[in-house]
Simulated scan of single mutants.
Amino acid sequence: MRAHPSDVVDFFVYVVVLNLAVEYLPAVISEGFTLSLLTALLLKVALELVLVLKGRVIARFKAAETRPGKVAAGLLVWVVAAGSKLAVLGLVDVVFGARVSLGGFVSVTLLVVCLLLSRAGVRRLLD
């Protein structure tokens, strides 16, 4: 599987945002630049999977025709949105242990939002 140029740009955007978070958010820790590169790569893969899953759940929400179906799909969107942050925290902990910390739920949520907004901004700038 070949990397698309936008994937490479996303990776570099993630590296920059992650290292800014390490510098300015005390809860976000990386013991070195190599670890931040590897963490950015892990975040890129994890967030791509989350975006695919979230897209499927949103499609299910839009396709639901009954009120209970809409409510169930809406709850599923919430579970994916919140659960993905916890999954990212757990994944980083399993892969890197104490050498990398993204803080808690609030800091990882802020980091993910900044990653996705930065990615969208750079993609828009390049298009």
Rank of each mutant, 00 (worst) to 15 (best):
S107C: 09
A40K: 07
K85P: 00
S101G: 11
G55E: 09
F105Y: 13
E65A: 09
L53K: 12
L51Q: 10
R56L: 14
L115K: 03
A63K: 07
W78H: 02
G103C: 09
V57F: 09
L47P: 05
G69Y: 02
L115W: 11
R60I: 00
V88P: 05
G90Y: 03
S84Q: 08
L47S: 07
V52L: 15
L86G: 05
R60A: 12
V113Y: 15
V57G: 12
G103R: 00
V94L: 13
D93C: 02
L43C: 15
T66L: 01
F105D: 03
L75P: 06
L75E: 07
V106G: 12
L51N: 13
L51M: 13
G104T: 02
A72K: 10
V106F: 02
L41I: 08
F96G: 10
V95L: 12
L102T: 01
G97Q: 10
V57P: 02
L47T: 15
V94I: 14
L49I: 12
V108N: 01
G103I: 05
T66A: 03
A59K: 13
V108T: 14
L75G: 13
S84N: 05
L89I: 11
D93A: 14
A81F: 11
V106Q: 08
V88K: 00
K54W: 15
L41F: 15
S107G: 01
V80A: 09
K62A: 09
V80I: 13
T66P: 02
K70P: 05
V92L: 02
F61P: 00
R99V: 04
L110N: 01
A81G: 00
A82L: 13
V92T: 09
A40M: 07
W78K: 03
A82R: 06
P68N: 03
A72M: 08
V95E: 12
A40V: 10
S101H: 11
L42G: 06
R56M: 14
A72L: 14
A40W: 06
L42H: 09
V88C: 02
R67T: 15
F105G: 04
L115H: 02
P68D: 06
A81H: 10
G97T: 00
V100P: 01
W78G: 06
V79E: 00
G74Q: 06
V52T: 05
L86P: 00
K70H: 09
V95R: 04
R67N: 08
D93Q: 14
A82S: 12
G55Y: 15
V95H: 03
A82M: 05
V112L: 11
P68R: 12
V88N: 05
V79L: 04
V52M: 15
V94Y: 07
V52A: 08
V50D: 14
V106N: 08
E48Q: 13
L91G: 03
W78S: 04
G69M: 09
R56V: 02
A40N: 07
A64S: 14
P68T: 05
V77Y: 05
V77D: 01
V106K: 07
G103W: 00
V92Y: 14
L41G: 12
F61W: 13
L89W: 10
V79M: 03
I58T: 11
K70A: 13
A64C: 02
V77C: 04
L47M: 14
L86W: 13
L51A: 15
V92W: 09
V50A: 10
R67P: 05
V112N: 10
A73T: 00
T66R: 03
